[in-house]
Nucleic acid binder design. Structure first.
Length: 464
RNA sequence: GAGGCUAUAGCUCAGUUGGUUAGAGCAUCAGAUUGUGGUUCUGAGGGUCGUGGGUUCGAGACCCAUUAGCCUCCCCA
């Protein structure tokens, strides 16, 4: 028999880990609800055609495809076709509906767009939804990168107002404030600004190449970026222009003013700057004083997903070596891919697995998550077991989480179980207690024990 | 798709230039202790040394292949 294992890039979550994860989910859910977003869930699998072509070439490669069922039952006349397509699938990155009609969800945004198009007549626009579900990517796992991970998204579709962008920035700030993650930076940029840069270089068609190179600025430095720009076909004059842009510094308004001067000749670029300025103005109306997360304009922020068209954001923390822990942006024509035109959307995503890893590394989960306040009743058997069951029922009906050791095992075995289980109180319903109609309560943290009347005991446990 | 590191008990890992019967800690089980857990003490069980081949009188160790995991680049949450 082989050792049991789980697929690469997936994880089991122990009770303690689940509690910590739920703490993050609950925090985010409360914020989403406070900002009046509505919950939505979509299937784990989508039709492959819904997903392909939405995430760029690299994205297509990373979609987890599901092998069609019933392939071996095909009619004779279909088998030739199947063999042909199967051969293609095996020989290169290729997918065919004949072999794979379905795929696992790659993110939450495209399924959301698909949902909006399918239910456009029932929805009240602007439609605000949040969604917390796992997604799958056939990527090579490494630190902070999993093949199955959860995203928590908030999107609003059907409104071009920059108030939406501002609210989403507030959601980020509020969330990382509540979770207590230090040194958080919400970087903000605009695809329109990037398009403006490409215009300045005289090569608007190379916008993607320019942004991909720019995105590496903090990793490989300006010299590296310049080299990459050259390789991607930007001329020297263009590279000089781009350097002027990356040299811009100061606070957000100073950066925007400097960029405005450089972008003077690009209407698109100027529009991007105006949008950023308005977004930041709305944000400062809505933001609370105590939120520490910085919101900063960063011209080198690119983001790979190719459906973004306006403001783009990405969240990082300097406290831990980790990729981005959130990202999002404006997509003007997302639903257009599914036939519904003129519907603009904007959204953000939280990478909760990375947030978990960051919080775990910094040890900033609240302590009460680990220590449950549960109660265990020792089982002394016979009439005492009856007595214990009666008390167990009374505790639960009062909302006290309690369990009875199910077997009349040796006393020290039951105590050892209670200790390992981490219960807060052990109740001892034995002969003496039963005869007096009382109960001995042992506080497992302090070791102190006292005998109480039943109502007194229940009241005491209700308040802990 | 490209590169690096690792694989020995349930877990974390020792194991000397290749040498007798492969060890430790933790965990598990039993006992000291049948109404008092955590600490302590005693004992027990548990291994095809990832898999296949090769070198050798002899391989956990050396060589080749293979599989899996971790990490880096690419890209991303």
């Amino acid at each position: 028999m082989s050792k049991p294992s789980i697929p690469q890039g997936t994880r089991d979550f122990s009770p303690e880990e689940v509690r910590k994860r739920q703490y993050i989910f609950n925090t985010l859910r409360n914020i989403f609800e406070t900002y009046s977003y509505q919950p939505l869930e979509t299937p784990a699998m989508e039709n492959l055609l819904t997903l392909t072509g939405k995430y760029g070439e690299e994205g297509d490669r990373l979609i987890f495809k599901i092998l069609n069922n019933g392939l071996h039952e095909k009619k004779e006349e279909d088998k030739g076709r199947l063999n042909e397509e199967w051969g293609k699938v095996l020989s290169k990155a290729y997918s065919s509906p004949v072999v794979t009609e379905r795929a696992l969800r790659y993110d939450l945004t495209i399924p959301f767009a698909r949902y909006v198009v399918m239910h456009q007549n029932e929805l009240a626009f602007p439609f605000r939804r949040y969604q917390m579900q796992p997604v799958w990517r056939a990527d090579r796992p490494q630190k902070g990168r999993y093949r199955e991970f959860w995203q928590c998204d908030a999107d609003v579709v059907g409104s071009t107002s920059l108030i939406n962008e501002a609210e989403l920035l507030c959601i980020y700030q509020s969330a990382f404030h509540q979770l207590g993650i230090p040194n958080v930076s919400v970087k903000i940029n605009s695809r329109k600004l990037l398009a403006g840069i490409a215009e300045l270089c005289g090569t608007p068609e190379l916008m993607m190449d320019i942004t991909i190179a720019l995105d590496k600025l903090d990793k490989i430095g300006w010299d590296g970026v310049a080299k990459e720009l050259q390789q991607r076909g930007i001329n020297d004059a263009g590279i000089t222009q781009i350097q002027k842009v990356t040299d811009v510094n100061g606070n957000n308004e100073e950066k925007l003013m400097a960029l405005e001067a450089i972008m003077d000749s690009s209407a698109t670029g100027l529009q991007g700057i105006a949008e950023l300025r308005q977004t930041l103005a709305y944000r400062s109306e809505l933001a609370e004083e105590q939120w520490e997360a910085k919101v900063e304009v960063d011209i080198s922020l690119a983001r790979g997903l190719n459906y973004y068209t306006g403001v783009i954001v990405e969240v990082t923390t300097g406290a831990v070596q980790m990729g981005s822990i959130g990202g999002g942006g404006r997509y003007d024509d997302l639903t257009g891919l599914f036939g519904l035109k003129n519907l603009s959307g904007v959204g953000v995503s939280f990478g909760i697995d990375r947030i978990y890893d960051v919080m775990e590394e910094l040890q900033i989960f609240p302590e009460h998550l680990a220590t449950g306040a549960s109660v265990m009743l020792v089982n002394f058997g016979g009439a005492n077991e009856q007595y214990a069951l009666h008390l167990l029922k009374a505790l639960r009906s009062e909302g006290v989480a309690a369990e009875l050791y199910p077997d009349a095992a040796k006393f020290d075995k039951q105590m050892k179980y209670a200790n390992k289980r981490g219960v807060a109180y052990v109740l001892l319903p034995g002969d003496e207690e039963r005869e007096k109609n009382m109960i001995s309560v042992k506080n497992f943290t302090t070791g102190k024990q006292e005998m109480l009347a039943l109502p007194e005991c229940i009241n005491m446990l209700k308040t802990v």
